[in-house]
């Protein structure tokens, strides 16, 4: 029962760990950014799912309805999504520049070239 009732948190945690693992384990910069995006998205789902009130509807004033879901986390996440997109865009732009400068987007090769030039 406990497990089923909290299923949204399980999804969040599993997604978060998948994202985190990709960031740490993969050497490819694009894969790192994908992992980072999954990591951030899991947090968005966390916010949005906690806003749901059982039996509540969308927060629009209609006669006969007196229970609403909480709209505030949605608004917050709208902002956080914008921040996330900005981060992804900047990360990708950096990856492009790194590809131009190093000729590779693999972490190991970049490290190797850095060590040679030192």
């Amino acid at each position: 029962m406990m497990l089923m009732g909290l299923y949204n948190y399980w999804i969040v945690v599993v997604l978060m760990m998948i994202g985190f693992y990709i960031v740490i384990a993969h050497g490819n910069l694009i894969k790192k950014i994908v992992g980072l995006t999954i990591f951030q998205t899991s947090v968005f789902i966390f916010y949005i799912s906690t806003a749901k009130v059982d039996g509540g509807t969308a927060p629009i004033l209609v006669e006969g309805i007196n229970q609403y879901s909480n709209p505030l986390p949605h608004v917050l996440i709208l902002t956080a999504i914008v921040v996330g997109i900005a981060t992804t865009a900047l990360g990708l732009a950096l990856a492009v520049r790194i590809k131009e400068a190093y000729g590779s987007i693999e972490e190991q090769e970049i490290q190797k070239k850095d060590n040679q030039s030192c």
Partner: peptide, 13 residues
């Protein structure tokens, strides 16, 4: 560039 990318990953986490 590489330093900035690493900072971006760490900072975003």
């Amino acid at each position: 560039l590489w330093a900035s990318f690493q900072y971006l990953i760490m900072g975003t986490i």
